[in-house]
Design a protein around this nucleic acid. Structure first.
Lengths: 347, 347
DNA sequence: TTGTATGCGTTATCAC
DNA sequence: GTGATAACGCATACAA
């Protein structure tokens, strides 16, 4: 019994103290070597490093976190990872953070801002050194929380100018407007939009706004019935197409909030026997890898997901280190004109 | 100066001790309420909760982690998040972990097992309560690390029987074999394979093995020149197709290691003027959302990525709580026969 | 059921 | 440069 208890005791891990004893130096010195502090003699460093190797010592992250007040990890709040454009960003974010010796905690919230706020609370409680958020649509309490804690944070994706939210991203409105202008220039006058739900999603709203601006400027505004909002998905895009085809005056071009919806719309159009772009033009947004392989290849906007991940990593790390970085950084999101758009059909 | 120093001092956060004072109870009692310990009177609980609300107290995760020896987060090591089949799994994993009040640290390693080992070290040092790995291909040191620390862990995706690696997943070989048998039954005799690189990827190896088994059993083994290994990607699949078409005796069916490669192969085939499946049959593996929307719809294997995420979450949490769970859990990965496969062409 | 006191493994602030 | 030693904020064995 006694013996078993002894056996059960987690074999005692070697502590910093053990290293100090082995190297015959103080614990403070070991800590200094560990943290690459300045003013440590080469001789001392070598002794300590030797002792560490000999004992196979591994510092305890939790103790380090408590004493130093940083855990070596940031938190990222994203709507979902089920959308490849977000997982691409997270992938590059994590890879870049690794360079800075920083880990990544992720939390998803399905576009539910209350869930996001709750997840943020949890991350803060966890002790993350910084936070990444998507867009500027958040509960006011989220901002309060971050500011009160003086926690470094950065938004991404949606780089609208906003004094509250520093961010790295791109303009969602302008490219959307350009897409619509491209169609208008091709002679289209009855445009339609298939958008993602806009609640808690300022990117979707901004794109919709861009479509609207161009349409109105051209004197052919978008009536409500030609704006369909559906959840993310190919099938959802197809359904949106069906509903648009039920209209009296069918659109000759459909602007989609993302490539996946556009893919669904394109399939449904072809299933309905329509030629793209001869009879109907279709645009996407994201430039997913498959966009250029669709038939016809999809006209869309190239969202710099990978670049955002990298720049957000660098920017947030800088802020954590107390370096002031630009409040806002605008990346390029160029139009990619392919063959899914063409001249409006001459009725 | 003095004043500024005072100002600069992080406004002192309220501590558990403050709550205890406010509620006029001991710190131990506050801790008990926080941790929902048994044997706490309703009256005391209410007093403490009231005090917590009044002070807006938030427990410090790092201190809690150091004292309790668990951080409330697990680590997941995945090859990449750039492949939607993995991000789908991570998405469901994270959502399910949330139910258990557990966070998720992710690390990617690009199929480089040395990187994986390094990332595992980092996660362990960080203090994660458990680890999720993909497949059974890992450096031996990884297993040693996990065992020595007695750290709960679970593999996923590849549910081969292996005493070292407990896991939840599916059989990669059998469905692959069945795909090949399906083609053989359709009269195909010259099969080819477009596989992902097999280094550090036992799933890719297992699938290839399944293809081989069926081919050999049918008396038409796969010669090396009809097995092409390429990186993940649509363009890569297309290139693989080109190289297969350079062979003297062209295959009549191509088995692909995943849907993305299959998509590339299919596009290249059509670009080359071949009818699918009349002139060539093509299969995938994963059943990504777009598989059923390809033209023709792709014959493939439905990988239960979401279900794996959920079951891994539940299983790992159970292990962390000391509950013994089955060493191995096999999920279903059914064939999905669609229109990309058909009778072999009669020369 | 509740309180007391110690431990968790580092970092960081002082002296020297 | 280096060494004592006091935080860091909470959990928990033990006592009451």
């Amino acid at each position: 019994m006694e013996a078993r208890d002894v056996m059960n005791k987690e074999m005692q891990r070697t502590l910093l103290e053990d290293v100090a004893r082995e190297a015959e130096v103080s614990t403070a010195s070991v800590s200094r070597v560990l943290n690459r502090a300045p003013h440590v003699s080469k001789r001392l460093r070598e002794r300590v490093e030797a002792a560490i190797d000999r004992l196979g010592y591994v510092p305890d992250g939790t103790a380090r976190a408590l004493a130093s007040r940083r855990i070596g990890a940031i938190g990222a709040l994203v709507p979902t990872l089920d959308n490849p454009i977000f997982s691409a960003m997270i992938d590059s974010l994590e890879r870049r953070l690794k360079r800075h010796d920083c880990r990544l905690l992720i939390a998803t919230y399905r576009y539910d801002l209350d869930d996001e706020l709750q997840a943020l609370r949890t991350l803060i409680q966890q002790g993350v050194d910084g936070v990444v958020l998507v867009g500027h649509d958040h509960r006011p309490a989220a901002l309060t929380l971050l500011q009160r804690r003086q926690l470094p944070f950065l938004t991404c994706w949606h780089a609208e100018d906003d004094p509250d939210w520093p961010g790295i991203g791109f303009d969602n409105t302008a490219p959307a407007r350009h897409l619509a202008e491209h169609l208008l220039m091709l002679g289209h006058r009855r445009l339609a939009v298939v958008s993602a739900p806009t609640d808690g999603n300022d990117r979707a709203r901004a794109r919709l706004e861009g479509f609207r601006q161009a349409a109105e400027a051209a004197g052919c505004p978008l009536p409500p019935e030609r704006i369909v909002k559906v959840d993310y998905g190919i099938a959802e895009g197809a359904e949106a197409f069906e509903s648009l085809m039920g209209l009296d005056r069918r659109p000759t071009a459909i602007l989609c909030g993302n490539d996946t919806l556009a893919f669904g719309v394109m399939l449904a159009a072809q299933r309905a026997g329509l030629q793209v772009p001869r009879e109907i033009s279709i645009t996407g947004f994201d430039d997913l890898p498959q966009a250029r392989f669709m038939s016809p290849p999809l006209t869309t906007v190239a969202v710099p997901a990978g670049e955002i991940g990298r720049q957000v990593a660098d920017g947030l790390i800088a802020r954590i280190d107390g370096v002031t970085t630009p409040h806002r950084r605008l990346l390029d999101a160029p139009l990619v004109l392919r063959e899914s758009t063409g001249p409006a059909p001459t009725d």
